[in-house]
Design a protein around this nucleic acid. Structure first.
Lengths: 341, 341
DNA sequence: TTGTATGCGTTATCAG
DNA sequence: CTGATAACGCATACAA
């Protein structure tokens, strides 16, 4: 075939450097990676040859010889919205400091996820995986196969680390704040498959039940602006409209805001709306969205560090980390006589 | 050392599969990758053995033998804000379809960028690079070294493909629209190093000059909400406030909106504000932001395809692609009697 | 201090 | 149809 006859990166090899410097490849390797003793003059010649040839060790060769990839993989549902991108940033930054490359894989709308994940696992030293992206049995298989695994925002898995933002308690604070505004009938928007969403709802309904207020089941809704808009139109148009719509994330809440505006409803006078995540748009929406801020960047950074520990063998058992969240009170949950900015 | 004695992925090798199936490794390889003839019965045995052992070919071994990585790299400034994340999504999706993994590298605030980029180049078959992230001489070196290169939103480079959104003409449309609203004094906010920003400003000032309107130099400003806020406070507080503030991107514009609100100025009655990109927050801001939408996802997808062509050797010369943009008229540029939604 | 030789896991060529 | 065996590029014991 004429197709595939050319190969990637026909750069110089260690042999060419060795020849040019008049030494063996062993000496080149030792010199360049600083392992073992090298005479100053020899060292100079090797460095010069490597420089002249612009030698870069073949990654495949190094990986094969070292038995490691110096890379970590990360699996998300998708990268839309600020949440995942922020986590990725945190992760990539730390990984880079630790000398590892980051390979990304998004699974949403993709067939053959298991094949893709297996392939990914084969080219990294460990995996960061968002909850809900990879079937549990595959995860178990990977963990069992000795692949270091860190889960983010996921249900726990034996043998894998877990990094998550605190959900329950901040949901309690949010609910109490809303009750404090006088809201009495609540709708929970966004039925979550993920355990993190479930924890939030447990926190909210706990408060309501304690106060003897009605707490209906979460209403299913796509986790997008469009999803929130559609659900909002449906919800706010009917009689018996709730005092407060507590949304599973900010995007849903933004959609509800749109729906309310279109229906001529005033937020928060007619209905309060809250989100979760504190994405950029939450701050700029009018009314600005009351929400719960997750330390997204930090989530990623912690995951990268935890993975490094696992890979380095510094730690054997798995560990669960829960990061604190922050209730961000803005205008959409009710009037705030004092803290109005 | 007790430190590094353990290696990654001690999965089964092709030898173990061969032994279990009672054949040679050559036959295993042929069977699994469908190259060359294999007797049905032999095939069955090999498949069974591979399945039982959960055999996955070692990526490093394959890469070394094949002389390719089946991976592509992408270099951005950072992943904050929706722009880069969207481009990455488009890129990753196409790359995945083409059987390539995506390795990401962000350069903002990082020392030793050249080293990181060289390392990245060594583990991929080709690179997608955002303008302004990698020194030109390094890019030239990589291109000269036979590394397939696709630049995004960048100045052109000999030997590299270029994918960019149309800038000049949409800037002209934006400026003409603003002039049509009766705005006469303009401030351009965000002095761009990138050639894409420069093109936008050329489009805007071209219109102004043609009409004999004053066109000052772009005001320097960080491309963040905070940057826009600070510049906006400064700009809108002084006498001789402009009719319209044309911002280099949406984040700056959102900051200006915040500044205007704080100064008690009404947008668009007192001052018009426009952005660029059409990020999610632009739609939800109040007033909603008039802006220019870039096909971010498509930008990434095109880059991935172009890179694939370059890598596959289907194409020798470099190609420049310009993708159309769309003027998105919302409330922040002035009152729209008719198209008010 | 340096060189030789072997292994890492696959692919692919070339005889059987 | 199948099996040795030579690359692929590098790291590293082991010798010298």
């Amino acid at each position: 075939m004429t197709q595939d006859s050319r190969r990637t990166d026909h750069g110089p090899t260690i042999y060419e450097v060795a020849e040019r410097a008049g030494v063996s490849i062993a000496t080149v390797s030792r010199t360049l990676r600083g392992t073992g003793p090298v005479a100053p003059e020899t060292r100079r010649r090797v460095l010069e040859a490597a420089e002249a040839l612009r030698f870069t060790p073949s990654r495949a060769g190094v990986s094969l010889a070292e038995g490691r990839h110096a890379a970590t993989g990360i699996v998300f549902p998708d990268l839309s919205g600020p949440y995942y991108a922020e986590v990725l940033m945190g992760c990539e930054e730390v990984a880079s400091e630790l000398g590892r490359s980051m390979i990304v894989l998004s699974t949403r709308g993709r067939s053959e996820v298991p094949r893709l994940v297996r392939d990914l696992a084969g080219r990294v030293d460990g995996l960061v995986v968002f909850g809900g992206t990879v079937p549990d049995d595959l995860l178990a298989e990977l963990a069992g196969g000795g692949h270091p695994l860190v889960l983010i925002a996921s249900a726990p898995l034996p043998g894998a680390d877990l990094v998550a933002a605190e959900n329950h308690d901040s949901a309690v604070r949010l609910a109490e704040h809303l009750v404090g505004h006088g809201h009495r009938t609540f709708t929970l928007l966004g039925a979550g498959d993920g355990s993190d969403i479930a924890q939030r709802w447990r926190g909210v309904t706990g408060v309501l039940e304690r106060l003897g207020l009605p707490a209906g089941a979460p209403v299913p809704c796509a986790f997008t602006v469009e999803g929130g808009y559609a659900a909002g139109r449906e919800l706010l148009a009917r009689t018996g409209r709730p005092d407060a719509v507590v949304c599973a994330d900010d995007q849903i809440a933004l959609g509800v805001l749109l729906a309310a505006e279109e229906l001529g409803l005033s937020v928060p006078a007619d209905v309060a709306v809250t989100g979760w995540d504190d994405i950029m748009a939450a701050r700029h929406a009018r009314p600005a969205l009351t929400t719960v801020r997750q330390p997204m960047r930090e989530l990623g950074a912690r995951a990268a560090r935890a993975l490094d520990e696992l890979i380095g063998g510094e730690r054997t058992g798995s560990r669960h980390q829960t990061l604190p969240t922050e209730l961000v009170v803005r205008a959409s949950c009710g009037t705030h006589p004092l803290e109005e900015a």
